[in-house]
Design a protein around this nucleic acid. Structure first.
Length: 506
RNA sequence: CGGGCUGUGGCUCAGCUUGGUAGAGCGCCUCGUUCGGGACGAGGAGGCCGUGGGUUCAAAUCCCACCAGCCCGACCA
C-alpha cells in the first residue's frame, strides 16, 4: 500500500468533532442528507439501529402496561391552537398544509390549487389531536387510566439541521396518558423517565442524569418537564428523552373530562413522553472512535460478522462450509430477547478492506476464519471495543459457547467507558470565575474540546439563566432528582436549595 | 429573515482574471498478480459546467435574474 492512514475517519474527534461526526455517519453508511432540505435518508444500517431501539423500548412500554395506537399526521389548526403556550412554542416551526391539489398554470407549471377552508398542521407533536380522541373516550373515572403510545414521524421546521440530531422530519415514539389524579399522573411521568434511563443505560450503554427542566426549557404547555441528559465525547450535553407532566392544561384545552368517584365532573390529568432518532446520533457521539462507529451489542443490527478468508481456490469451499456451519450454530443462540444476528461477508476483496468496512460500521465482533483455522478448528476473534490489532485465536466450539458472554462484556465495557468519561468531565463548581473559566476555550478562534458538566448552585432565577446563556451558550440541562444540598448561588450569592447541571448542549 | 462565500463526472476540487466547446486525485468497471493490517499494474466507463436570459462568430469563463447549499447573525424544546 502506498499510503497508510492511522485512522479510518478523518478528521479525528480531537481535530474537528462536528466534521468527524458527519464523516462517521457517511463511512458507516448510517444515513445521508437528502435533496429535501433538512431531511435525511436513513440507510439500512442506521435504520437497523433504530429498529432495535424501537423493539426494546416497545417491550419496556408493554411491560409497563402501555399499548400502541396511531393518530393522524395532520392536525386541524383549530385543534392545535387550543392550548395557548403550546401553539406559541411550536408556531415558528410548523409545516402547514393549505391546499389539496395541483393544477397546471398558464406557464405550464404545477401550482397548488383548491385551498383548504381550515389549514392542517403537520404534527410537530400530537397532544392536541390525541386529546380530541381522549375527550370522546373518557367519561368516567372507570375509563382511566388511558396508557397509549404511538410510533410516528413528526415535522419541526428547524433552521440548522444535523443528521440524526436535528432534522426537519424525524422518527420518534410519543406516549400519551390520562389519569384520574394528579399524583397518579406525576407518578407516570417519573416512571417513564425511569424507563428512558434504563433504556439508555442497559441498551445504549449510555449513563444519563435524570432531572427536571427549568422553567425556560420546559415543553410548551407542560407543568413539568423531566429529562435524561447524556454527555457525548466533545463533552456537550444532549437531551436523550423527555417525560412531561401536563397537569390539566391539555385536558382543559381538549375537553378531557370525567365523572369522578364523588360524581363530579373533573378534568383528566395527562402526561406525554418521547424519545427520537436523535438517540442514534447520541450513540454515535457517545461511543464512536477515530475508526468509526462502535455499537453496543444490544442495539447493533448485526452482532457478529464472519469474514471467510479464502486465498486459495482449493480450500475456499471448505472454508465457506465451516463459516456457514458456524453462522447457523450462532443463530440458534438468544441475545437481547431475540436471536443473534450474524452476517457472513462473502465478498472477495483483497487485503483488509472488508475488515475495515465492518470496523467503520461498528459491528461488535468480527470473526476471521481461513484455511489455517480448518485444521485447528479455530477462529480469530476481534472485538470492536478493543484495539484493532488485538485478535484472539479460539477454538470454534469455545467461541460458540461464550459468544453471548463476550457480547455482554462489550456492552458492559462501553457503558463503563462512557461513565468514566462523563465522571471525569463533571465538576462541582464553586465560583463564577471558575464557572466562566471552565466553559471558555483557550483557543477562541478554533475552540478545542472543553468544558463538561458543571454542578453549581443557582438561585432559580430566569435572568441568571439568560445571562449565562448569552455569555457562554451554557444552559441548565436539568435540576437533578437528588437530595437537597443547601448552598449559595455562585452568580448572585443568594440562597440555593441544590446544585443544578450546567453544560453546552446540542 | 439580514451579511458573506460557493455551485464543474459518484466524492474533493482545478480551469474563470486574459472567452475558442473540460481536467486531476479518489471512487467505479475489466483483466492479471494479490488476499489473516486499508494491495499493485495495465486498460476503460462516466460531465445538459446549478437554472433561465443576455453580450459575442464563439460562454464553464463576461453581464443580469433566479434557485440551491455552506458559514456568520437572528431564531430554535
Amino acid at each position: 500500500m502506498t499510503k497508510v492512514e492511522k485512522n479510518a475517519i478523518s478528521p479525528t474527534r480531537e481535530q474537528d468533532f462536528p466534521e468527524w461526526y458527519q464523516q462517521v455517519i457517511r463511512a458507516a453508511e448510517l444515513a445521508e442528507p437528502s435533496d429535501v432540505r433538512g431531511c435525511m435518508v436513513i440507510r439500512p444500517w442506521g435504520f437497523g439501529i433504530w429498529e432495535n431501539m424501537q423493539r426494546q423500548l416497545d417491550a419496556l412500554f408493554r411491560a409497563t402496561g402501555h399499548r400502541n395506537a396511531y393518530f393522524p399526521l395532520f392536525i386541524p389548526l383549530s385543534y392545535f391552537a387550543k392550548e395557548a403556550e403550546h401553539v406559541e412554542g411550536f408556531a415558528k416551526e410548523c409545516a402547514v398544509v393549505t391546499h389539496t391539489r395541483l393544477e397546471v398554470d398558464a406557464a405550464g407549471k404545477m401550482k397548488p390549487a383548491s385551498p383548504l377552508t381550515e389549514p392542517l398542521v403537520v404534527r410537530p407533536t400530537s397532544e392536541t389531536i390525541i386529546g380530541a380522541s381522549y375527550a370522546k373516550w373518557v367519561q368516567s373515572y372507570r375509563d382511566l387510566p388511558i396508557l397509549l403510545n404511538q410510533w410516528a414521524n413528526v415535522v419541526r421546521w428547524e433552521m440548522r439541521p444535523r443528521l440524526f440530531l436535528r432534522t426537519t422530519e424525524f422518527l420518534w415514539q410519543e406516549g400519551h396518558t390520562v389519569h384520574e389524579t394528579e399524583a397518579e399522573a406525576r407518578a407516570e411521568t417519573q416512571r417513564m423517565l425511569g424507563v428512558y434511563e434504563t433504556f439508555a443505560r442497559d441498551h445504549c450503554a449510555i449513563p444519563v442524569f435524570a432531572g427536571e427542566k427549568s422553567e425556560g426549557e420546559k415543553f410548551p404547555g407542560a407543568v413539568q418537564t423531566m429529562t435524561i441528559e447524556a454527555m457525548v465525547q466533545d463533552r456537550k450535553a444532549i437531551q436523550a428523552g423527555t417525560s412531561h407532566f401536563l397537569g390539566q392544561n391539555f385536558a382543559r384545552a381538549s375537553g378531557i373530562q370525567f365523572q369522578n368517584r364523588e360524581g363530579k365532573q373533573e378534568f383528566g390529568w395527562t402526561t406525554s413522553w418521547g424519545m427520537t432518532t436523535r438517540m442514534v446520533g447520541t450513540v454515535i457521539m457517545a461511543h464512536g472512535d477515530d475508526d468509526g462507529v462502535i455499537l453496543p451489542p444490544r442495539i447493533a443490527p448485526t452482532q457478529i460478522v464472519i469474514l471467510p478468508i479464502t486465498p486459495k481456490e482449493e480450500t475456499r469451499g471448505q472454508v465457506l462450509e465451516v463459516c456457514d456451519k458456524l453462522a447457523s450454530d450462532l443463530r440458534l443462540k438468544r441475545y437481547a430477547d431475540l436471536g443473534l444476528e450474524i452476517e457472513i461477508d462473502h465478498r472477495q476483496f483483497g487485503g483488509g478492506i472488508r475488515n475495515w468496512e465492518w470496523i467503520k460500521k461498528g459491528v461488535p465482533i468480527r470473526l476471521e476464519l481461513g484455511p489455517r483455522d480448518l485444521e485447528n478448528h479455530s477462529v480469530t476473534v476481534s472485538r470492536r471495543d478493543h484495539p484493532m490489532k488485538e485478535k484472539q485465536l479460539m477454538p470454534v466450539t469455545e467461541f460458540v459457547a461464550c459468544a453471548q458472554e463476550i457480547l455482554g462484556s462489550i456492552q458492559q465495557n462501553l457503558y463503563q467507558r462512557a461513565l468514566k468519561f462523563r465522571d471525569a468531565n463533571t465538576r462541582a463548581i464553586e465560583s463564577k470565575e471558575e464557572f466562566y473559566d471552565f466553559f471558555t476555550p483557550k483557543d477562541s478562534v478554533k475552540p478545542e474540546i472543553h468544558g463538561g458538566f458543571a454542578l453549581a448552585h443557582w438561585n432559580g432565577s430566569r435572568e441568571v439563566e439568560e445571562k449565562i446563556k448569552s455569555d457562554l451558550k451554557v444552559t441548565i440541562r436539568c435540576i437533578p432528582v437528588s437530595d437537597p444540598e443547601p448552598g449559595r448561588c455562585i452568580f448572585t450569592g443568594q440562597a440555593s436549595k441544590r446544585r443544578v447541571i450546567w453544560a453546552k448542549a446540542y
